[in-house]
Amino acid sequence: MAQGFGVQSDALRTYARNTEPDVGRIQRIRNHITQLELSAGTFGKLPESDSLKSDYDAKQDESLRDLESAAEALQRMVDAARETADRYDGTEVHTVSTFGGE
């Protein structure tokens, strides 16, 4: 390409392939956290015990939402890397054929 510009589409695909398992790992972590249920008496019988349980439950819910968001964002990055590689390759093929190349 002009002035030495080039894209390593294989590098983009390698990034996507190596990163995609992390999406599953985040989802597995989220699933494990979902299974953590604490009983009402877990924090003892002190006056603030129920408040501690409520705080824990709220933080757990926030963590689950954050992990889901992280997995979705990472999957979008993986998909975008693959799509970008495909588009660069498609553009390259089109450009070469337009100028009579093979």
Rank of each mutant, 00 (worst) to 15 (best):
D66H: 08
R76F: 01
E68R: 03
A11Q: 11
E92C: 11
D50A: 11
T14S: 14
F5H: 06
Q3R: 15
T91D: 14
S97N: 15
I26R: 00
T14W: 08
L67V: 01
D22H: 12
S54N: 06
Y56D: 00
M77Y: 04
G6T: 12
N18Q: 14
T19K: 07
S51Q: 11
K45V: 08
R82F: 06
R30Q: 13
P47N: 07
L38E: 11
A85N: 03
T34R: 11
S49G: 04
E68V: 01
K45C: 06
D55F: 08
K53I: 05
G24W: 05
Y88V: 14
G90F: 05
E83H: 15
S49E: 02
A85H: 02
G6V: 13
Q8D: 14
A80K: 05
G44A: 03
Q75C: 06
D57E: 09
N18G: 08
Q60R: 14
T95F: 06
K59F: 05
R28D: 15
V7K: 00
A85P: 00
Y56I: 01
T91H: 14
H32I: 06
Q75S: 12
S63L: 09
L36A: 13
S9V: 12
A40L: 06
S69A: 15
V93I: 14
A58Q: 13
P47L: 08
D10A: 14
P21V: 00
G24S: 13
M77T: 12
N18V: 03
R25E: 12
T34E: 14
A85W: 00
F43N: 03
V93K: 14
V78E: 00
D86W: 06
G4F: 03
G90A: 09
R82T: 09
V78A: 05
D86V: 03
R82L: 09
D22E: 13
D57C: 04
S39M: 07
E102F: 14
T91W: 10
L12T: 01
K45W: 06
I29A: 10
R76Y: 01
L12G: 00
S51E: 12
G44Y: 01
F99W: 11
R25I: 11
L64M: 11
Y88M: 07
Y88E: 06
R30H: 09
L64T: 06
G44D: 01
E48Y: 07
Q75M: 08
E48T: 14
I26N: 01
P47I: 10
N31L: 07
E72K: 14
E37P: 01
F43E: 03
S39V: 08
L52K: 03
V7F: 04
L46K: 12
N31S: 15
A73F: 01
G6K: 13
K53E: 03
A11G: 07
S54I: 06
Q60Y: 03
H94R: 15
G90S: 13
